[in-house]
């Protein structure tokens, strides 16, 4: 049985894979390492220190970062929650409601935020809010985030719903459950892994967004990415590396959670 193995092997592919991972990780790992640098010069290594992390929380920029973090997390939680609810309803409509008028167009609409280039969405949103006289601020960021979070929440939720057979709901309805009861008591609990993973992905996407936020945020309001961008424009300082590493950690934790929840849900099936 040597032959089937050989068919899968191409010289150099392993090396290119390693190269791919090195390219993807090297910049992040190097910034994470330098965020622990004791030296004030950002490139000379002066020993291990946590002082830039202390600086993030207590330094002169601390209030700015704290407000930005509060804004970022509030918006991410709010937008991801609403997007998850909307996406769940949409997934039920697409997977469990038979045919209806506008179904194909609905799917296109859900995916639209993924297809329109981010810069176009950003410009269009700004023009829209200004024209209708909506004051740009936290609320406009929230609405814009909600819109582009919907497809990210929808994908895992819909995938999960497709893999849950509808026999349990059928049985419940044969026993005189109303459709709402069948949904709430049967489908929803079965959907929990998909819904959680959709929520987490929407949360990360909202937390990470820079471009659209930067257009609709209005004066004086910052989220973490816009605050970081503003500081970077004046040069990369060590405290930016520390806060970047923290945000990186948050993303990694949430992706990992989403990954394990999604896998746990699949293996149970």
């Amino acid at each position: 049985m040597i032959k089937p193995l050989d068919l899968r092997r191409f010289t150099g592919f392993r090396a290119l894979t390693i190269l791919c991972l090195v390219v993807l990780y090297a910049p992040l790992i190097i910034v994470a390492i330098y965020s622990f640098n004791d030296s004030t010069s950002i490139t000379r290594w002066g020993g291990f220190s946590l002082k830039w992390y202390v600086d993030v929380f207590t330094g002169p920029d601390a209030p700015k970062f704290r407000n930005a973090a509060i804004n970022s997390f509030t918006i991410a939680i709010g937008a991801a929650t609403c997007a998850t609810i909307i996406a769940t309803a949409a997934a039920v409509a697409m997977n469990r409601a038979g045919r209806f008028r506008g179904k194909v167009a609905s799917l296109a609409l859900i995916n639209l935020p993924l297809m329109v280039p981010e810069i176009v969405t950003a410009v269009a949103s700004l023009i829209f809010f200004i024209t209708i006289g909506f004051k740009t601020g936290l609320m406009t960021i929230f609405i814009a985030h909600l819109v582009f979070c919907i497809p990210f929440a929808y994908l895992p939720i819909s995938a999960r719903m497709q893999s849950v057979p509808d026999v349990y709901e059928q049985a419940a309805m044969d026993l005189y459950a109303t459709p709402w009861e069948a949904f709430r008591l049967i489908l929803l609990p079965l959907m929990i892994p998909g819904i959680l993973s959709g929520f987490l992905l929407a949360f990360i996407i909202s937390l990470d967004d820079f471009l659209i936020t930067n257009f609709v945020k209005g004066a004086g309001i910052e989220t973490l990415p816009t605050a970081i961008f503003g500081s970077v424009k004046q040069g990369i300082k060590p405290n930016i590396m520390a806060i970047s590493t923290l945000l990186l950690g948050v993303s990694v934790v949430f992706v990992t959670l989403s990954w394990f929840i999604g896998r746990a849900g699949q293996s149970k099936n």
Binding site: I86, A89, V92, P113, V116, I143, L146, S163
Partner: peptide, 26 residues
Amino acid sequence: ATRSEIYRGNGPRLMLPVWAFIGIFL
């Protein structure tokens, strides 16, 4: 599974939030 029609007739109602948010704000 994807052809399930358990909640038949509720499609447009369930899709309404998507139409409202993506329609109005995108």
